[in-house]
Design a protein around this nucleic acid. Structure first.
Lengths: 327, 327
DNA sequence: CTGAAAGCGCTTACAG
DNA sequence: CTGAAAGCGCTTACAG
């Protein structure tokens, strides 16, 4: 275990300067910041190890712990971190950019070795938090600011799922989502939907953005169904798609006879319903583990930020009816 | 925020002695240990706060993050902790006593203000870890060692659910669970089942203990069904009950026509299936929040340990057939 | 922007 | 078993 003195020596500065860099207070030149950060990373430096500070921790921000998708990520991250001797701090944004900033601030107070973030909007999120430790985006695309990311091609997933429905004769396809401002993943999936509809020469429907956080089992779609008469509904994620299925059933509609439903994520509960949910499987667990590995590599070995894209896979289920077959 | 010097002054000893007590090294008299511990608790002392240690944290251990029940607890704890200015550290046991001990050890290294634990077996778990910060059991019954707990009456829940089935004419009721050694909650629910069966003069069936951690969608019950020919199956939790439903459907059995199913927990996904799951609702979110509040009260205000029991509620669904009605 | 130096919180041989 | 004191790792006014 290395000390601040060693870091300072390697960086060619005083312990005072090194301390200022690593605590992001005091005025330091950019050059100095780079040198100290590099030296610290190379030595695997951690503050005050002698003072019983314990093991390092990584901070994880997800929109919601109760969404199985993020729970799966979190679980994988935790397993990977434990294996590497790191603790895991958690925070949730509840899909709210304001809470998101607070949550990250609270993580930062623990001086984590690094952060894994699933944010509302990677371009705008955390614009104010200046100095962050090594950070990996999970599920979001990389930006100029956050160059390390592990994601899947949500645009392609949205396009492919829509193509799947179009191929089966669906034309009036309704896309239902939480608020796009809260999830660039949902937004990209919708953009993929638009692309597929256009490519097929079909008139896309405007997305139905709803607040679904705590009321999935009370979802009421009767107005939207009456107004738009869709033959198929895409939920921006499986949890929402399952909620849509529940809402349709409460309306007395049968799936897929009266209306087809599909989602994204591939949560295992989608397999347990009477009719298995058509979905696009996203390897959340694998993505979480990969994000943790990348982060640890960056934080401990000063590895350069990278961007990984993991493949999705369309999983046809029984919730989509083929309209081109006579029944 | 108090320093070691203040603790030493209050305990009437030197900082050296106080340090030895709190780090559990060096030789100290029992009397001294008591005085220093007490002083430290009263002052809410935490090591090295000046060295950028940041805000206090509470450590949470749950069996599995991907079980929606524990995710709900964790989420509530996190919200409550954030509100009180505490960070949350997580660890999971994967229902394995050995991993459980490791996980708690890793939490302790962060010197959390307190712990919230859902353990495999509160009587045996963590027998080795000597000095713990203020600790609240969540979901487990209190023991002589862990006197603070927030739980529900799992025995009563098991009994009531079994009575519900008995009242509807079921006699051959099979109880399916993960390994009892991994969950005293499941065990208590089964004991409640035994009690109800006995009270009704019925021959109880031996519980079917299975490994279900990562293979719920491949569950195969055909042997058990053929051997025991139950008219109803109780899953020790909803996730398992949903898995049972999936397995029965893959066998070509219809629910509840051919066989009835019920579970425990009241996860919202149980409402989204075509036929809503009969279950015993446990207020996980509320319990998590209550555990966090109790812990913070103990850690910050030296409140005495307490034991809260929150009420469960039977929620009849469509997965249980009334055999006494001609169909 | 940087460093020498004072000082804080803590740990730990050393002496008793 | 206990404390005075040396010393470590770190932060931070202060001076330049």
């Amino acid at each position: 275990m290395s000390t601040l003195q060693q870091v300072a020596f390697r960086a060619g500065c005083s312990v005072a300067t090194a301390s200022r860099v690593l605590n992001r207070n005091g005025p330091v030149s950019d050059e100095m910041v780079r040198r100290v950060r590099r030296a610290a990373a190379e030595l695997g430096y951690r503050v005050g190890y002698r003072n019983g500070n314990g093991r390092p921790a990584i901070g994880v921000l997800i929109p919601s712990i109760t969404n199985p998708v993020f729970a799966a990520s979190l679980s994988s991250i935790q397993n990977r971190a434990l294996h590497a001797g790191h603790s895991v701090l958690i925070a949730q944004s509840n899909y709210d950019p304001a809470q998101e900033a607070d949550a990250v601030a609270s993580l930062l107070q623990q001086q984590p070795t690094g952060l894994i973030l699933t944010v509302c909007d990677p371009e705008r999120s955390l614009a104010l938090s200046s100095a962050l430790p090594p950070t990996v985006l999970l599920g979001n695309l990389p930006t100029t600011r956050f160059t390390a990311a592990v994601a899947t091609d949500n645009f392609g997933a949205g396009r492919d799922l829509t193509d799947h429905l179009l191929l089966r004769g669906h034309r009036r396809i309704l896309f239902i989502s939480g608020h796009f401002a809260a999830s660039d993943r949902a937004k990209l999936r919708y953009l993929g939907y638009l692309k597929a509809m256009e490519a097929a020469g079909q008139q896309p429907l405007e997305a139905l953005e709803i607040s679904f956080i705590s009321s999935l089992d009370q979802l009421d779609l009767s107005d939207a169904i009456a107004r738009l008469s869709p033959t198929a509904i895409i939920g921006s994620n499986d949890l929402l798609a399952l909620g849509v299925m529940g809402a349709l059933r409460r309306q007395g509609l049968s799936i897929p006879r009266d209306i087809s439903v599909a989602g994204f994520d591939g949560i295992s509960l989608g397999l347990l319903t009477e009719v298995s949910l058509t979905t696009v499987e996203i390897p959340d667990g694998t993505m979480g583990g990969a994000a943790a590995s990348l982060l640890l590599d960056m934080a401990e070995n000063a590895a350069p930020p990278r961007h990984l894209t993991l493949p999705y896979r369309l999983r046809p289920g029984g919730t989509v009816r083929d309209l081109s077959i006579q029944s």
